[in-house]
Amino acid sequence: MTMGNGRKYTVRTVIFYAVYCVAAWVLERVAPSGPCTPGLGVMVLIFTPMVGLALFLFSLIGRIVGRRDFVGPMLVNAGVVVLSLCIFFGLR
């Protein structure tokens, strides 16, 4: 059973964010946050909306050009951007 291109890219995107979160956790353990300074893990998480937005734009451009099916990764990246901004700004 083969996986379609759109599904393959969606799985890669989800795996990327899983590795991204594990890396943030490991970096936070290596260089923990102090009372006035964020640790490496927190610094990585601060860049999450920017990384998600960049990957969303990449997927959007790929979809517009029409070379690949990037609808799944676009939805995952948009969800990550919205979720991370809601967490950062305390929106419910």
Score class of each variant (00 low, 15 high):
79 G>M: 09
9 Y>T: 00
56 F>C: 11
70 F>P: 03
42 V>R: 13
81 V>M: 02
34 G>K: 01
33 S>K: 01
61 I>Q: 10
46 I>R: 03
60 L>G: 13
32 P>H: 00
30 V>F: 01
58 F>C: 10
83 L>Y: 12
78 A>T: 10
4 G>W: 02
23 A>Y: 05
56 F>L: 15
24 A>K: 07
35 P>L: 10
6 G>M: 10
33 S>I: 04
44 V>Y: 03
77 N>V: 00
89 F>W: 12
76 V>N: 09
29 R>Q: 14
56 F>H: 05
10 T>D: 08
62 G>M: 05
32 P>C: 02
80 V>A: 04
37 T>M: 13
55 L>E: 08
89 F>H: 06
69 D>G: 01
59 S>R: 01
52 G>L: 09
6 G>D: 10
81 V>S: 02
69 D>Q: 14
9 Y>A: 12
67 R>F: 12
88 F>S: 09
61 I>A: 11
81 V>Q: 03
73 P>E: 07
59 S>W: 02
84 S>R: 07
19 V>I: 10
72 G>Q: 05
18 A>E: 04
46 I>L: 04
24 A>V: 01
37 T>K: 12
62 G>H: 14
49 P>H: 05
48 T>N: 12
56 F>E: 07
3 M>W: 10
27 L>S: 10
17 Y>P: 14
26 V>L: 06
65 V>D: 09
69 D>K: 08
23 A>K: 01
70 F>Y: 14
25 W>G: 06
27 L>A: 10
88 F>N: 06
6 G>E: 03
7 R>T: 15
55 L>P: 00
15 I>A: 05
13 T>G: 03
88 F>K: 13
20 Y>G: 05
3 M>T: 14
76 V>A: 03
31 A>K: 12
69 D>A: 13
73 P>Q: 09
50 M>D: 07
90 G>L: 11
54 A>W: 12
28 E>K: 05
68 R>S: 15
59 S>N: 14
1 M>H: 11
70 F>L: 15
29 R>A: 13
83 L>A: 15
58 F>I: 08
75 L>E: 05
61 I>C: 08
39 G>H: 08
67 R>H: 12
39 G>C: 04
87 I>N: 11
55 L>I: 08
82 V>M: 09
56 F>D: 02
23 A>L: 14
70 F>S: 04
72 G>D: 11
92 R>F: 10
68 R>V: 06
15 I>N: 08
26 V>K: 00
31 A>Y: 13
9 Y>F: 14
91 L>G: 03
80 V>W: 01
55 L>T: 00
41 G>T: 12
